[in-house]
Design a protein around this nucleic acid. Structure first.
Lengths: 345, 345
DNA sequence: CTGTTAGCGCTTTCAT
DNA sequence: ATGAAAGCGCTAACAG
């Protein structure tokens, strides 16, 4: 049988209508404004629709009504679990509405991003969520001209046309590193994946706190230009230890990296947290159950998605959200991969 | 500024055409068959398109041409990392084609699945990939009537209309458990997430091997009806040990579960693999770098996605793939969470 | 190489 | 409560 290539003509509204002996618009109403059709007629038409296997053509619908009930969501990567949580937040908000989600992936490329944004707009989407590659003027310009609500996930302090869902990554990282210093670690390394805007801001925060404490040393900073993975965490820790054998803790820009670092420490027989401290970022699902449980910075990924989608839903309803950027904050989750702060118990 | 709600009229093909002093079709051609337009004219129109910020309306395009260049992909969940790998395979194949991907999520519900399949079909998608909830006759019926290529990801042995990408989960699980038995483990538990078709088949495979060895005991089998997570792995191991304190190994239906089990063993100070054996499933990214590295069953998730998308791309091109189900196999990856098989070194 | 004429399948607007 | 007419923005099919 193979791949099916339908040649059969599709059942249309008119087909159903003529079979029912009514006009097309009536069938259309049955589907969209059932209360405007007498219940007996409605009943009959509904059955017919079912029998004939009629399914409305969304393209025609979108064209005629100039409405489209899908939201476009642009994320930089599918591999990064941070975005998965984010996407789940979006789904949760959108579930039980009539909206659909269309994901697109920029593969971390700015060109791709522009292309995709244009494409989403050309599809007359009901709304767009842009995550991950913030701060590009060309994209902002597109957003300004957009004919639908657009929500951008940005870093605090960045200008956005439209609604922004923000987190201060620089501040979050700085706070985490300050805490590590308070725990008595001195040679604190940084490991991270691709240096997108968020990564850069986290690195800034790290540097700020290290400089402030007089502990800064560029040799402690290690990046690899790709999506952060557990394997990368292992590699980066080994590299870090080779270059700075006296490193005594590491701030990971992502929990997946931290997981790799943790395993590598086990292999090297370094005791966590006494000999070596680890701090993650994002508070992903597994962070609470590693051994020892991972100290990390919780970023409200799920809520960010939820709020972003919420802004779209409201925006489309004609109740535009507040005219600006919503800062969702962060939280340091102290578990057991860092020593207790000095002076505390 | 708030959410933007565009009221501005959209630039259309006709707008561009009249400004250029040509007819609409010429502009249309510049976009789709540039070689059919003289290069000077083309040049001029291209600039105009850029200046005026014209972007084609996909709905109109789809309606007029009765073609749509998006593939619909239906997966049961976004949380399960197995599907993420699968999706990456799809993306890889589709990248550099003109096709776009639209994901939908069934949230593991059969009703949702039917609704979504109908919806995808109503959108006149160029092709559909169905993963995760195989074996539902109502869906198969829809697939048969589909007017576009449909690829289903199924378990070997299941009938599918259209192309099937298959893996024999029952066989894979049976082989893994047989191997565990060969390693000398006797009280081998099973932990798993939601019992979808694949889960059921894996459980079957486990049971088969256990019965064969005279080792079967239903008390060893533990499921929790949700997406498998690392946390769930921890919980399930604790439950298993409470009910069967003599359990000496566990087969996990997913690597995320195995990760939880591994950490829980560390907490309980059970030595892996000597005192306790662990076998995962899927060979996710982190499996090779845990400590000890995780023995697991590799399922070619990425390739499954790639091949599924490939079948669609070919099918749409009019070169339908082979008329049946492609079995992609599995592979037992021996690492260090199981003892060496008895008799081997 | 460029244009004309239809019409995709639906919804809008205005009647009845 | 139901319908007629018009048209959404684009492309197919055929001219020239």
């Amino acid at each position: 049988m193979g791949v099916k290539r339908g040649r059969s003509e599709r059942t249309t509204l008119v087909d159903v209508a003529s079979r029912a002996g009514v006009s097309a618009i009536t069938v259309s109403r049955v589907l969209r404004e059932p209360e405007k059709v007498s219940s007996s007629l409605r009943q009959r038409i509904l059955e017919l629709i079912d029998d004939m296997g009629y399914v409305p053509d969304q393209a025609a619908r979108a064209l005629a009504s100039r409405h489209n009930s899908t939201f476009g969501v642009l994320v930089p990567s599918l591999t990064n679990r941070a975005f998965i949580s984010f996407m789940q937040g979006i789904e949760e908000r959108v579930r039980d509405t009539h909206f659909r989600i269309q994901y697109a992936n920029t593969h971390n490329s700015r060109d791709e991003e522009q292309r995709q944004v244009k494409l989403l707009m050309s599809q007359n989407t009901a709304g767009i969520i842009l995550a991950g590659l913030e701060g590009v003027e060309a994209v902002n310009e597109l957003v300004r001209r957009a004919s639908c609500p657009v929500v951008q996930v940005v870093d605090v302090g960045l200008q956005t046309p439209g609604v922004g869902i923000a987190v201060d990554h620089s501040d979050a990282a700085a706070a985490a590193v300050r805490h590590m210093i308070a725990c008595g670690y001195k040679r604190i390394g940084l490991v991270g994946g691709s240096l997108d805007e968020r990564g850069r801001r986290r690195t800034d925060g790290y540097s700020r706190s290290m400089v402030q404490a007089g502990l800064y040393d560029p040799n402690l900073i290690h990046h690899e230009n790709a999506t952060p993975t557990t394997q990368m965490g292992c590699r980066l820790l080994r590299r870090l230890m080779r270059i700075c054998p006296d490193v005594d803790a590491v701030f990971c820009e992502n929990d997946d990296l931290a997981l790799g670092v943790l395993f590598e420490c086990q292999r090297l027989d370094k005791k966590v947290p006494d000999e070596f401290g680890i701090c993650g970022y994002n508070d992903l699902d597994f962070a609470s159950v590693t051994e020892p449980p991972l100290t990390t910075v919780r970023i409200p990924l799920f809520e960010m998605g939820f709020r972003a989608a919420d802004a779209l839903v409201r925006g489309v309803d004609g109740r535009p959200s507040e005219p600006n950027t919503i800062n969702l904050g962060y939280e340091l989750i102290e578990r057991r991969t860092l020593r207790r702060p000095i002076g505390q118990q």
